[in-house]
Amino acid sequence: MRKVLVLLVLSLLVAGVSVQAAEKKMKVGFVYVSPVGDAGWSYAHDVARQAIEALPNVEVKYLEAVNEGADSERVFLNMARKKYDLVFGTSFGYMDPMLKTAKKFPNTVFMHCSGYKSSENMGNYFGRMYQARYLSGMVAGSMTKSNVLGYVAAFPIPEVIRGINAFTLGVQAVNPDAEVRVVWTKTWYDPAKEKEGAKSLLDVGADVIAQHQDSPGPQEAAQERGVYSIGYNTDMSQFAPKAHLVAPVWNWTPYYMEVFNSVKDGTWKTGSTWNGIAEGVVDLSPMGDMVPADVKAQVMARRDEIKKGDYIVFTGPVKDQAGTVRIADGAVPADGELLGMDWFVKGVVGTTE
């Protein structure tokens, strides 16, 4: 009888442990630099967040409009102290605060978007948006009549400079006479300032406005002036249907799911990930009806070449603004060179500061 009771107690204990293990939830945090309603950068990440939140046995929290620097560090610390299993930080300026926090909390996996630093429990990831930028440049270069294109840009960091250069190379591939004029707003998200930046470019003759900004402000400015625009982050055509030609867009869901599952099953390893069109992280939105069929066909053919690896953006020769060859004929720059890019290609009007 005693043996039966012991076995029964042990069975109940095992069952209790099993139930507790089954009920244990993965805690996942997301930290955004702008509001999720920006229709841009943070919104694109939040689409992936919602996909993870829909999974069973997961607790998800996000914080929006968190400033880079000390504010973000407080947020990361708070999530780590609450024993979050996985934390995503989605702005370049979160890199050092996240790294500092990661070293203090080795049991939390931290993932930083757009940076380059890592540790045993912190990885970094980004997408080769320059591939889609190049393709959008081909569209813009085909549609301009003034041969002046405007680019409203956030901060002069390599990520943004690389995108401007890729866009310009795409423009020049179909229209060597066109130039790209750049204005810096020094903000990721400020709809009014972004719109004013676009207007300043329209005032000097730009008839296509591109952007590295989070809001559709530049799109709206273009439509109000009756010219064209190139969106960013998401399909922004609903905000400027008469102006919106196309947008380089993000699709974070497959990658975020992959990271989530690797943390959940214990196979996650630190490292750097830089996926592109081939992996589905970046792409183009549908092109507007105003884009001629032959332009669409040309752009999509080049997209297929990029996807297959048959065409590599930034293959030399590539000259800088002064006409100096920066990438030799036939050469392909290493990822480190692209990640540290701090110079403009020929055809860009503006400074990298």
Rank of each mutant, 00 (worst) to 15 (best):
A192L: 15
K145G: 10
T144R: 08
S18T: 12
S119D: 15
V28R: 10
Q321C: 06
V281P: 01
Q238H: 06
M79E: 06
F155G: 02
V227I: 13
L13W: 10
T101F: 02
Y311C: 05
L5E: 14
P333I: 10
N57C: 09
G115C: 09
V282S: 02
K100G: 00
V227G: 02
V295T: 08
F88L: 08
P56E: 11
S215D: 07
W250K: 12
F126R: 09
D214N: 13
N147W: 10
R2C: 04
P156D: 06
I306F: 14
G316S: 04
S237V: 07
D320Q: 01
V183E: 02
Y189F: 14
V14H: 09
D342E: 10
L55Q: 01
K195Q: 15
W268R: 09
P254W: 12
D177H: 11
P106C: 04
K199Q: 14
I230E: 03
T144A: 05
S146R: 08
T101N: 02
T273R: 12
A102E: 03
Y228L: 04
R49H: 04
R81H: 08
V171C: 01
A221N: 02
P156E: 07
S91G: 06
V183H: 03
L55R: 07
Q211I: 07
T187R: 11
D71R: 04
R2D: 08
D203N: 12
Q321M: 11
L12E: 00
G141I: 02
T351V: 10
S91R: 00
Y189Q: 11
V349Q: 13
L77I: 13
L135V: 07
D265W: 10
D214G: 00
K24C: 12
G288R: 00
V349H: 06
G280L: 08
K25P: 02
S114N: 13
V204F: 11
A22F: 15
R133F: 11
D96T: 05
Y311Q: 07
G127I: 09
Y43V: 01
V246N: 04
V313R: 08
R162K: 15
V47C: 00
A328P: 01
S272I: 15
A48Q: 07
R133S: 09
T351I: 13
K346Y: 14
R133W: 12
A293S: 05
W274D: 06
S215H: 06
G93E: 06
D71N: 09
I230M: 07
R74W: 11
G16V: 12
L284D: 02
H212M: 10
P248D: 13
T270W: 15
Y43K: 09
A54W: 11
K145E: 14
